[in-house]
């Protein structure tokens, strides 16, 4: 089904090790702006818009996981929940945003919920949400990326992005809420692993 005409397939090409190529943020902002507008033209409400952005982000996430595992983790992938969350919080965040996420917390009310929060994610930088769109957060795209990474690694989850107001600060922070869908199965799997 997937045959290419070129003699050299993409997996035969050498894989750039460092990948430190850069591109201007405005190029991304233009593209992202168009992406949001396109998604908006396809849907009728904000929930669907966020889901659509999440889907696009998911495509990025599953691919990023592979790239990062090869490049940053010398071909290893995390198999434990906490290590995986740390991987998202530090490795993935550093790769995407140039720094670690500010916080990684477990929810007080549910043990299968975790939150990663940070402010000034560049995807939201040039986006101002009109009042009639209420709680829409363009970081739904980032939530999609996180979902892609987690699901690709075998930790299916529901991931959503929310704005949360912070005291004494003008701009709200973005909280990425992760709810693992098969939490008990993941825990059982971890117990069977050697060394636990």
């Amino acid at each position: 089904m997937f045959q290419t005409r070129g003699s050299v397939g993409i997996v035969d090409k050498t894989f750039s090790r460092q990948g430190k190529q850069e591109i201007s943020l405005s190029s991304f902002a233009y593209l992202f702006g168009e992406l949001v507008q396109y998604c908006q033209s396809q849907v009728s409400n904000i929930g669907e818009l966020e889901r659509k952005l999440d889907e696009v982000g998911y495509g990025v996430g599953v691919r990023l996981l592979e790239v990062l595992c090869y490049r940053e983790r010398s071909q290893r992938r995390e198999t434990r929940l906490l290590d995986m969350l740390k991987f998202v919080h530090s490795t993935l965040w550093k790769y995407m945003f140039g720094r670690q996420a500010r916080d990684l917390e477990q929810s007080n009310t549910a043990e299968d919920e975790y939150m990663i929060s940070d402010s000034d994610l560049f995807v939201t930088k040039y986006v101002s949400v009109p009042r009639e769109m209420g709680h829409f957060n363009p970081a739904a795209f980032v939530a999609g990326v996180v979902r892609g990474v987690l699901e690709g690694a075998g930790f299916p989850a529901r991931v959503t992005a929310h704005y949360v107001a912070v005291k004494d600060q003008l701009r709200p922070k973005t909280v990425i809420l992760i709810k693992f869908t098969g939490y008990s199965a993941i825990m059982q799997r971890e117990q069977r692993m050697p060394g636990s």
Partner: peptide, 10 residues
Amino acid sequence: MINAEIFTLT
């Protein structure tokens, strides 16, 4: 500047 691969993948 940002990481070019994010742009590419997006």
